[in-house]
């Protein structure tokens, strides 16, 4: 039954471009665009949840890693002329390396101090993006980033030019992130992560090095965020400093905390709700942030596990 439901859902998700064409032919482009964004945000939110939900470190630096990946990919593709896959891998690695380097001093901070330190990092990254004009072009943005072409040099190549193509690419990336997420958060690794999250001193007594596992989750999450950043700029063809502000953190916090911390299903539901909904409602960014902030405030104060636990409670 459950398997059948998941199969049906997967079929709907994969065939979405045709469904959209059949159901809302007039707004096909717009709806597909929202779907691409939803898939990319879902992947980004899952990577964020690896840190927040599974090792319990409230990092606010995710936009920085997303930005490092996005700018690396943009620069590799425009200035160095790298092929898409090369730029993607380079972007992911760059973000991962930055995370591993800054993670060492940042994890000297615990709990809320860590959160503030990471927020500081995000701020520094955004200052750099705005001001390092020789590299990032600052507020002028990096433009004319080529559309992705799948394939290796010399071999057959598949250019992604259509919106459905972008959608399937984003969906494939999301599927890969889901698999990685499952692999990391279940079985022995997941158990070690959760042990660190739930009781750090006891994790030490169990032979777990808390710092190592925190750093591992942080670095992997940043690597994924960098990869998503690469996909993002190759889709939009442009990268601006505004893409990596605190507003992105708020978005991720809302998706993760209102969807369900540490829950694959919760985060996916959150990503759909909070990426698609404001688009459909055509909310101005400031109003969206006011509403998100209020929602976040209400939900964390009333139910810290997010919608997931609300749903579970309602089902009972």
């Amino acid at each position: 039954m459950r398997r059948a439901a998941i199969g049906a859902l997967a079929a709907v998700v994969v065939s979405a471009p045709w469904l959209v064409a059949a159901l809302v032919p007039r707004q096909q482009r717009y709806v597909l665009h929202v779907l691409v964004f939803t898939a990319l945000f879902a992947a980004l939110a899952l990577s964020y949840d690896l840190v927040v939900g599974h090792v319990g470190s409230l990092s606010l630096a995710h936009p920085a890693f997303f930005g490092v990946g996005a700018y690396t990919a943009a620069l590799l593709a425009t200035r160095a002329g790298w092929p898409f896959l090369g730029a993607l891998i380079g972007a992911a690695l760059a973000a991962g390396v930055v995370a591993a380097l800054v993670g060492v001093p940042l994890f000297r901070l615990t709990e809320h101090a860590f959160a503030v330190g990471t927020l500081g990092l995000a701020l520094v990254a955004s200052v750099v993006a705005n001001n390092w004009v020789e590299v990032t072009r600052g507020p002028l943005c990096i433009t004319e980033i080529p559309k992705p072409v799948l394939g290796v040099p010399g071999g057959p190549a598949l250019a992604i030019t259509t919106l459905p193509g972008h959608y399937w690419l984003a969906l494939a990336a999301l599927a890969a992130v889901v698999l990685l997420y499952r692999g990391l958060t279940t079985f022995r690794l997941g158990r070690a992560f959760h042990a660190v999250r739930d009781n750090e001193p006891l994790a030490g007594a169990a032979g777990i090095d808390p710092l190592k596992y925190r750093l591992l989750a942080f670095t992997i999450a940043a690597t994924v965020a960098g990869g998503v950043g690469a996909l993002y700029v190759h889709y939009l063809s442009v990268m601006c400093p505004e893409e990596m502000t605190v507003a992105l953190t708020v978005n991720l916090l809302v998706i993760v905390f209102l969807g369900g911390v540490g829950s694959l299903r919760g985060v996916l539901v959150g990503a759909v709700l909070f990426t698609a909904l404001p688009e459909v409602l055509r909310l101005a960014p400031t109003w969206r942030l006011v509403i998100y902030g209020t929602l976040l405030l209400l939900v964390v104060v009333r139910s810290p596990e997010g919608l997931e636990s609300l749903l579970r409670r309602a089902a009972r």
């Binding site: 708020v250 916090l253 109003w287 942030l289 006011v290 976040l296 104060v301």
Partner: peptide
């Protein structure tokens, strides 16, 4: 502290916007 942090951060976002 998770809840405290997110709640005060959310307050900050609401007030700013």
């Amino acid at each position: 502290w998770h809840v405290q942090l997110i709640a005060t951060l959310a307050t900050s976002i609401v007030l700013t916007n």
